[in-house]
Design a binder for these strands. Structure first.
Lengths: 344, 344
DNA sequence: ATGAAAGCGCTAACAT
DNA sequence: ATGTTAGCGCTTTCAT
């Protein structure tokens, strides 16, 4: 904190403004460039962000609010985002949204957004739990760009980067159907959360497209927690007519469901075929290898950061945009081919 | 960003300095207090952190670096910390440390620390992966207080807040022993990581105290990842003489181990008794309920924040401190009483 | 208790 | 290409 641009100026016998210009990528005579670089190095000069921010009305800080940091998918997203932002000279102020905690009831998203705005972020990356944009009021008023993750863009409010969950969900359920499954259980995510609604929709649509009946008993209302995944298997297994396949719609429910499956001694895929949204390390390792829909996490982060970066720099082209990324299905060994079985 | 302290001054017909004083908790005549509060409210004034920081050489920002955000324990820690810090007026700049990624090899901790220091954090909360303090050089030189989590305090360098892992580990292994187990498998964490070493020590010490032999084959070298947990069961189950009990030393290895257990159709506790470090939602729900060592997460966060807060405010009493918290064992149903079995 | 004024480190407009 | 200078919003002496 001690050495300032002034010191560098003195050291190099140049004007403060020349140093400033250099720092910000301006043109400087070659000889001076060297001198300045040396001086900066020797002195260990680091620009003072506070001073810079005071002038430029920028903090070079991005606020990120998102829940469920305890699952691999989210953690990876945070990690990627942080890296990309840092490479662009931004740091990340992070607010985790409690998933199971009191947060979900009180939904203090607006409070958090306002807090970050007051602290002076240049942009916001938000993963909301429902499509409700009250919390964006101050961001809009103060023209702080917002990119929503796992949501569509909103006219006049925010851009959105999301994965085509309906498609991914459809594809994996279709895969089950094509393997002869008719009774397919599913544990859904919280109502109003776009990804959850889409994954449910994909399931329903696939069933309908293949003329299959949709039984209420097979659609378990969950909330993306491991516990709800666990309960869903519990519930399905208590049915007289058990499903032959199961679709866990996110990482956490998948873990929970697998636990119940272990507990009940259910065999995959002999007793129950199993597919899941969100791929993870173990999914490809455990036996049988789990068929899963993988989200392009790096790409999501990249698109969101890129878009936010552009907005923060005044590029408002195509606002609001909705970037929709395709997930990828990994077909592995957790689905039993019922037709095959019949033949045997 | 528009309304400043100046506006408030004008609005109230008071001097800027009076407003400033009020904001910072100084004494103001009752009548003025009211006027100021009203004006602030009406105008929606929020102090500009950059300007304030420029004067005070403070950013009211704390940097946090920690890995493994994908497990419940870590996620909860981040969440708690963020909350506590915010209540004290600090925001959190977060850098996740990739666990399985390239980070673990290159170990760019110093790079991250320096980055945060350059960005001007007032304090640092770090969970290092090994006891190596090179990365603290700049923090020390610039007198930026550091509280290490999951580490001891270091003379002249940093305070430490940690859990007595040796004790917790000892206790839970002792529990196994007292239930008649002699062949106890364990999957350890990365060498050099204090918590991992301590948990290993607790295991060894308990075995020694009860005069039990320690077999190399039962001590699987892991790295706190789910995969290593999975592999450890795989390995142990391939032994001629399988263990009767297993100790997963953290959340991730526990998940991985449970997966392998499902896959191999191993029954808990009939075929294998199971205990784990780090308690989690499902542990108490699945059958059998898992015996687990729970870390006092809220307390850890509280102690770390409190200590860091004191340091940031110049209180250097007892530096460096090492705060050691006791974990708690939850004895549930995943351990078979072998004596009982003999009787039967 | 309140006010006037200096200045934190930097950027940007303007002058050279 | 480089230099001079005003001022961003705030805290902090120092007066009053």
């Amino acid at each position: 904190m001690a050495v300032t641009i002034k010191d560098v100026a003195k050291e190099t016998n140049l004007a403060i403004s020349t140093i400033s210009k250099f720092i910000n990528g301006g043109n400087v005579r070659e000889a001076n460039r060297k001198k300045i670089e040396e001086a900066i190095d020797r002195l260990g000069f680091v620009p003072n962000d506070a001073a810079r921010g005071l002038r430029t009305f920028r903090t070079y800080t991005v606020g990120m609010i998102m829940g469920g940091a305890s699952n691999q998918h989210t953690a990876a997203l945070i990690s990627e985002t942080q890296k990309l932002l840092r490479n662009r000279g931004y740091s990340l102020t992070f607010i985790p949204l409690g998933m199971a905690e009191e947060d979900i009831k009180t939904y203090r998203l607006k409070e958090y957004v306002d807090y970050l705005i007051d602290r002076g972020v240049d942009g916001l990356l938000i993963t909301p739990m429902k499509r409700n944009i009250d919390f964006l009021k101050n961001a809009r008023e103060q023209k702080i760009p917002v990119v929503m993750m796992e949501e569509r863009g909103i006219e006049g409010e925010a851009d959105g980067v999301m994965v085509d969950c309906t498609g991914g969900s459809y594809e994996v359920v279709e895969h089950l159907i094509k393997n002869g499954h008719r009774k397919i259980g599913i544990v859904t995510g919280p109502r109003g959360k776009l990804t959850a609604d889409e994954r449910r929709t994909g399931y329903i649509r696939a069933m309908e497209d293949y003329g299959l009946p949709i039984y209420k008993e097979y659609m378990i209302e969950g909330d993306y927690t491991a516990l709800s995944g666990y309960r869903s298997i519990e519930q399905l297994w208590s049915l007289n007519e058990r499903p032959t396949a199961f679709f866990a719609t996110n990482y956490d429910t998948c873990l929970g469901a697998l636990e119940a499956i272990r507990e009940f001694g259910i065999r995959i895929p002999e007793d129950l075929s199993f597919v899941t949204f969100d791929d993870f390390d173990l999914a490809a390792v455990i036996r049988p290898h789990l068929t899963a829909v993988r989200q392009p996490i790096a790409k999501i982060a990249e698109m969101a950061c890129e878009l936010l970066y552009r907005r923060m720099n005044g590029d408002t082209a195509d606002f609001p945009r909705t970037i929709r990324l395709k997930p990828e299905c990994f077909y592995r060994d957790s689905v039993l081919d019922l037709y095959d079985r019949e033949k045997v």
